[in-house]
């Protein structure tokens, strides 16, 4: 599939200028060319490692940092809520 930088930037919530667009497309294309040369069929893959199961957590409450500490880096707060501009 062809690289549509504008569309990808939108998906990634990044703003890129027209100048940046050309250079970025060139840079990324170069890497994609390299990636395009990878072998087509390097073997089957399930991605599942049944012999290495992930450890699970018990259903026990663990204490956490206070609300103040967790929200201390927030740009904007109101009555304990985080604030963002309207979601339209």
């Amino acid at each position: 599939m062809k690289l549509d930088i504008r569309h990808i930037a939108k998906l990634a919530r990044l703003e890129i200028s027209e100048q940046e667009e050309q250079q970025l497309a060139r840079d990324i294309d170069a890497i994609l060319q390299m990636a395009g040369r990878l072998p087509e069929n390097a073997g089957a893959q399930t991605g599942l490692e049944a012999d290495r199961p992930a450890p699970l957590r018990r259903d026990i409450c663990t204490p956490s940092a206070s609300r103040e500490a967790l929200l201390a880096n927030a740009p904007e707060l109101r009555d304990g809520y985080l604030v963002v501009p309207k979601t339209v």
């Binding site: 957590r57 259903d59 026990i60 409450c61 956490s64 940092a65 304990g80």
Partner: peptide, 23 residues
Amino acid sequence: TKTKIFCGCENRFGAPPNTLVCP
């Protein structure tokens, strides 16, 4: 369940905003 799916925060409805949270 008593806790959330990926962390040990309490799974409870109706608490004051952002009091049942963790990193």
